[in-house]
Design a protein around this nucleic acid. Structure first.
Lengths: 118, 118
DNA sequence: CCAAGACATTGACGAAAGTCGATGTGTTGA
DNA sequence: TCAACACATCGACTTTCGTCAATGTCTTGG
């Protein structure tokens, strides 16, 4: 395997990551951390993935409740956390509430850790 | 602005994110969450950024201590958290300990949230 | 061999997070 | 109008987390 020409994904990310290019400020860290904290839970990770992978890109809370062995208030709590940091958009239609992944927010986060594509 | 031809970074990430392509398993979520949890703290974010942006890609603990108004044990604790999840490599040389960002681990995480480039 | 320095570990404490049962708030169908 | 349903909020509890002071471990210079 050639080592000089190819740029592995690892190196691509490392070299272009805003985190690595220069030290982030305290303010930046304080703004980014809550987003990561919202993601840093197994249940919320699965919730985000379930919503994002769902047909039409949105999922009803009733569907999500059934995917976990957790109480309904707990799922509601996790959805609220993801919604408050802007990772999930909510849309109430009739009796049901539909959640949708905010692609912009997720992209911002991914771009921050990985390549700094603009 | 054209809407049909250009694929914005947002859409690129959204469409290719492993998180969005299909629901992740409970096991996957349980493995990923600790990594994100390690990152989900303002101090640790700054530590990672400081190390990554430092000359030669590595930084001595003594340098890091001076960058925060926190006790030495607290910094040591945060470094340990980042090290235990594999985001920071440690290298003791003489009396000093140098930390270095594990680019592979960070790239894996970024690739998981963002585009699934291989 | 010993004192000083760099960093880690321990123990303790207040703050924050995850979970649940009970209850509240809208909406719909009868 | 009212009962049933979908979802949110509240209050309480346990666990985890961030922080520090005190102490331990290892290395080096004298």
């Amino acid at each position: 395997m050639s080592k000089s020409l190819e740029l592995t994904p690892v190196e691509t990310v490392a070299c272009c990551s805003p985190l690595m290019s220069e030290p982030i400020s305290t303010d930046q860290a304080d703004r980014i951390a809550p987003l990561l904290k919202a993601l840093a839970d197994p249940v919320r990770l699965r919730l985000l993935s379930l919503v994002g992978a769902h047909a039409d890109g949105e999922a009803c809370v009733c569907d999500l409740n059934d995917a976990f062995e957790l109480s309904q208030p707990t799922i509601s709590h996790h959805l609220k956390v993801l919604h408050e940091v802007g990772l999930l958009d909510r849309d109430k239609r009739g009796v049901w509430v539909y959640y949708r992944v905010n692609a912009t927010a997720l992209a911002d986060l991914a771009g921050l850790l990985g390549r700094g594509v603009r």
